[in-house]
Design a protein around this nucleic acid. Structure first.
Lengths: 201, 201, 201, 201
DNA sequence: GATGAATGAGCATTCATTCAT
DNA sequence: AATGAATGAATGCTCATTCAT
């Protein structure tokens, strides 16, 4: 990577950092492109070198924390499926919380209509999460942790809905509950019960 | 109610109907106040006789179907708590589906930040749903359908998250699955299992 | 017409007047919508109450002088066809000259692609002129001023091309020749010769 | 010419070719410098190695076909002046047609104001055509094909107006008539008649 | 000669909202 | 209650052009 490419990457990073901070602080609608570029110390037009539309930066902002979850689960081969899932719940909501409520809101607004989200797989985060989780469950069936007849598709659907639902409710309640506390309770009362009958001993 | 009041009500109804149709068709951001008034056959300014801000019409649009669920459950005294909840799940998603994906999206976007939706209690639909559902569960404890130690708050939270999550996922998937089919499966695999240990026999 | 409608008409007139003056002075590309509204003494947004796009005002500016030619010819029943046509040539170029070179240029640029010119017949000024002129010639055939076999369609085409061509050349030469002088010479040397053999005596 | 010069010429050729294609397809305003460079397979900045401003490429594009007409007429010494002129009409419209309607439009828009097209003589294409044509007529006077008193200036003016007018009308009609067919009729009915009285026998 | 990141002026356009009628 | 002309703030976005590499 030559000097120019490095500089370009650095510029993009500055924009994302500035955008993240502003978004956290004020929310998407309350900031404009110029606010971001000003904070990043670049020209207004430079924004459009890296993002096609104002909204697109949100995807990049939120991609950072989420993208790591998949890898983590991969590297937990020794753990039981239940523990993997608990970890998944936990990390998902941790990311949600660390992004902050405004970023979450805008991200949700954006991806609510996948047609708004151009080209990338990121527009399909839902699908991505779904596939990843289903894969984890299917592997557990293959590893004989879960019974043959486990409805992995349905379980995946339920879990994803619950996570996205918790996030949505958190935004709607204006952050009135602690995501991580509730996540733990959800796992205890719901996740474990639901999986119990599919666990192989 | 005199003639004038009737006419006024009729005008409001026309606005809501027009707004609903447009919202379904195009989504909130793609329409403006004039679109609505034009379709309703009234002048632009008339909109502001009935709604303080553009967003406010969405609340009126979405209130219609949802507000009926509460009453229905009220009138099902003879049913078992499980059946009431199944009915709740079912009706909720029925409303979601009948509103259409664009209305759902916009409604979600709006209420995602309750600070945007002031003055009306409907801006707190989440809270309203929550309270109503918790009430149903608490009643079931009082009626001795559920055990004394049932964590009604947690169960309510889980159910609401699941419903809102299913709705969110439906929007994100661009309507790729059938809400009602999945709802039924959710009830079967998840709801029933989760409640089982709290049921009094 | 009530007070409000009168006021609206007045506003539009102010915009057209302001636009005409600025256009004459500086040319289309050198002025922006705000210049026009400022000169007209109205708010920027008001421009868009009357014109869908910046370009559209040019059509209204130029329509004024041209639209009268048709009526004039109508009211010259006693004149010979040759004299009518000479009058037509003359008046056309008079309008061109009185509009000024910048208005002409922009008008030509606009209508050069009829797909740019929305809805109205005015976008089809060429067609309008053509039809009107052909009508004059056809009437002359009917009145037995011109012979039965006169190729009115072709003659119309030639005349219209010549007029639009003279206008185009005038713009291209940056106003280096006097439109009216040349028009008279055109009529003398070309128009008369061309028509001669179709004149009935 | 060394290797580097050859490569440079090749790059310029690629840009012109790409520009021509895009211009035909979409028209000048609808394309930007990046479209052209992308299609040509070079970097954006390279454009400015060869053209001072975006508009300048149009001149290079349109120069190609037109510039040949002059030479052709030169090499037709044995033909009669009438036939030369007919050839001129024909070739002019052939060029117009082969350039395509969008290129014609843009070219017309550009040269409509010669102040926009400085530095090159081609900005004065009108003048160039005029001079060339006048030269042909003057030669015909000198060769005693035309009478001494032929108003060559006026005839040139008429012919040029007619050709540019036909082109303008063709654009305005959105290509609704066949330029070449009409050109032939024009020559037959108008050009020949007009010249007749100046022909020496 | 070629590159492509950076620039930043420039502007059309939208539209929620107001208010005199 | 209804109207619809007027408002004017607000801003996303384009893109020709420059210049360090």
């Amino acid at each position: 990577m030559n000097k120019r490419q490095t500089a370009a990457l650095e510029t993009k990073r500055k924009l994302i950092t500035a955008g993240l901070e502003l978004l956290r602080e004020k929310g998407f609608d309350a900031i404009n492109v110029e606010d971001i570029t000003q904070k990043a110390g670049v020209a207004k037009g430079t924004f459009y070198t890296y993002f096609k539309r104002k909204e697109d930066i949100v995807l990049d902002i939120s991609r950072v924390p989420f993208s790591e979850i998949a890898d983590e689960i991969e590297n937990m081969k020794e753990l039981h499926i239940i523990e993997k899932l608990i970890h998944y719940y936990h990390r998902f909501m941790e990311c949600v919380e660390s992004c902050g409520i405004n970023v979450c809101r805008q991200w949700t607004r954006d991806v609510l209509d996948p047609n708004n989200v151009p080209e990338t797989k990121d527009g399909q985060k839902w699908k991505y999460d779904y596939d990843m989780l289903k894969n984890i469950l299917d592997n557990a069936v293959r590893n004989e942790e879960l019974k043959e007849n486990t409805p992995t598709e349905l379980l995946t659907h339920i879990i994803i809905s619950e996570l996205y639902g918790m996030m949505t409710c958190w935004c709607m309640s204006d952050g009135k509950f602690e995501p991580l506390d509730w996540t733990d309770k959800f796992c205890e009362v719901q996740l474990k019960t639901m999986l119990e009958k599919y666990i192989r001993r």
